[in-house]
């Protein structure tokens, strides 16, 4: 009976749950789903990570190539995010047109988070000014998407970057000879970016929504917080929200950021 009720009246069904202060998967409103991160899992990439948030499963691998910098920015390297949402990622057939859109937006945001929010300096990718820089291809593959695709992708990308080992390259200016050494060097990340997603349904803020919750809620927004600064705030359409709701979410996001950073630190020390 409950199944039919859920199918025929999805919104009323959800509302009944919310009245009892519980969500469809048994979480309370401010509870996040469990996170799993597996770093350096792909052998052939320089840095990689497989991330799970609830049922969302995102894989990120980074490869690096040598290239010539732009004449306008002789010190800056390149970062090229590439997001691929496979056909298995989305369950619903109706979201097939949405699919392409999600990956384009994600590419854009990952570049913005890394570069404009100063997570890494493009100058760190320089080998020889004006002659040789690193070009990092950040490939993100969505294996399964069940909400929080932003959170999971950014987490996968950041954890892959934090494990990235670049070989030390020497460039001889006179002969133009490139020598790739055996020693490896870690890339310095200024900030470990963490993005949290929130959705609002009937004036209730739900943290870390699942795909089902995202699709029936009236608005979804993303917050990227680091200590006392905000690196990303994106809300696109939906019902208007007040400043109060924003402040509440920012507070929440600060806690979440601390949790995830400590998780990643413990992961790195165990390695």
């Amino acid at each position: 009976m409950a199944e039919q009720h859920k199918l025929i009246y999805p919104i009323k069904h959800f509302r009944d749950f919310l009245e009892n202060e519980i969500r469809l998967d048994g979480r309370t409103f401010d509870k996040y789903r469990p996170i799993g991160v597996n770093i350096a899992s792909c052998q052939h990439s320089l840095g990689s990570s497989a991330t799970k948030i609830g049922n969302s499963n995102i894989l990120c691998g980074i490869r690096a190539e040598l290239s010539k910098p732009r004449a306008s920015k002789p010190l800056a390297g390149y970062i090229v995010p590439n997001v691929d949402m496979s056909f298995t990622a989305f369950s619903k057939a109706s979201s097939s047109c949405n699919n392409q859109n999600v990956s384009e937006i994600l590419e854009c945001f990952i570049y913005r988070i890394l570069y404009e929010s100063h997570c890494l300096k493009l100058e760190d990718l320089c080998i020889h000014p004006g002659k040789l820089v690193w070009c990092l291809y950040i490939d993100i593959i969505g294996l399964e998407v069940d909400g929080g695709v932003f959170d999971a992708s950014v987490l996968a990308c950041a954890s892959a970057l934090s494990t990235l080992n670049l070989p030390i390259v020497t460039y001889d200016e006179k002969s133009g000879k490139i020598e790739i050494g055996d020693e490896m060097k870690k890339l310095h990340l200024n900030i470990f970016p963490v993005v949290s997603t929130y959705s609002i349904f009937d004036n209730v803020v739900l943290v870390d929504p699942t795909y089902r919750e995202e699709s029936i809620s009236s608005t979804v927004f993303h917050l990227g917080v680091h200590e006392d600064t905000i690196g990303l705030f994106h809300k696109s359409g939906g019902v208007p929200i007040s400043v109060k709701e924003i402040q509440q979410s920012v507070k929440n996001a600060v806690h979440r950021e601390k949790e995830i950073t400590s998780l990643l630190n413990s992961l790195k020390t165990n390695q």
Partner: peptide
């Protein structure tokens, strides 16, 4: 109230 917020930078 806020319909859309779009930020870039820190």
């Amino acid at each position: 109230n806020l319909v859309t917020v779009h930020t870039s930078g820190r």
